[in-house]
């Protein structure tokens, strides 16, 4: 391994450029997660209503986002929004929108599953003391469903972070795109740079996701213990 490679990391403003790219990545992930969670929780509650057409539509929404790979979703929105709907969004906004809709879709299923796994008896006990629909949701069902949702939600976050690696495909200036620019600029003088640049990006992703997935595991364990 030549030693010139590692210098690529520190040369000039390379490292701070990488960090800048990482910030773009994180920002898109964060905004998408927040928007997605809010929409997903609301739609997830609606999926427990006995309204068949509504449930069918929401199920369709979920299945579409589940079946189409995220890469393809990105290109669908990237190409079709401007062409068919005359909506010209910058690439990072398109990505945020796609990720948010994807998070929301997955979230509807997490929320629905958790709400439905609260025992039927709990619902009836709430009805028996005269709670209205929303009171029942608020005081009985959601507080009990919440701990069931948490581990899956945190896992979903790690998936979003990993999926942000696709941003480069639609030319967002994310950490990978900037990494590639640096690699190309130094290709002649330090061919080993590729190893170090991708290495550091690899570590960046690991450093974000590892704590999140540990947290998810911890939450899951606590949930299982609480059940016994």
């Amino acid at each position: 391994m030549a030693h010139s490679g590692i210098d690529v990391l520190t040369a000039g403003s390379n490292f701070s450029r990488l960090l800048g790219g990482l910030w773009v990545t994180i920002k898109i992930a964060l905004i998408a997660i927040i928007i997605g969670l809010i929409i997903g929780v609301l739609l997830g509650i609606l999926r427990t209503l006995p309204n068949r057409p509504l449930r069918f539509i929401l199920r369709l929404y979920l299945e579409f986002f589940r079946i189409v790979p995220t890469v393809v979703l990105l290109f669908l929105f990237y190409y079709i929004l401007p062409k068919e709907f005359n909506v010209n969004l910058p690439a990072d906004a398109v990505a945020t929108l796609v990720f948010a809709l994807w998070v929301a879709a997955e979230m509807t299923d997490i929320v629905r599953g958790a709400l439905e796994s609260v025992p039927q008896h709990q619902k009836e006990a709430g009805q028996a003391i005269g709670l209205t629909y929303w009171q029942l949701q608020r005081y009985v069902l959601i507080p009990q469903a919440w701990p069931l949702c948490l581990p899956a939600t945190v896992n979903l976050m790690t998936r979003v972070v990993k999926t942000t690696s696709l941003l480069m495909l639609i030319s967002v200036m994310d950490v990978i795109n900037i990494g590639q620019q640096i690699i190309e600029a130094n290709n002649k003088t330090a061919p080993n740079g590729v190893f170090w640049i991708y290495g550091i990006i690899f570590i960046f992703y690991f450093m974000i996701n590892y704590p999140l997935s540990r947290w998810a595991k911890h939450l899951n364990k606590r949930r299982l213990e609480a059940n016994h």
Binding site: P119, H121, Q122, E124, A125, G126, A128, Y139, V140, P143, Q144
Partner: peptide, 11 residues
């Protein structure tokens, strides 16, 4: 009042 008590475990 039900056979299975059905207190709310979160309260």
């Amino acid at each position: 009042v039900f056979q299975s008590y059905d207190l709310f475990p979160n309260r």
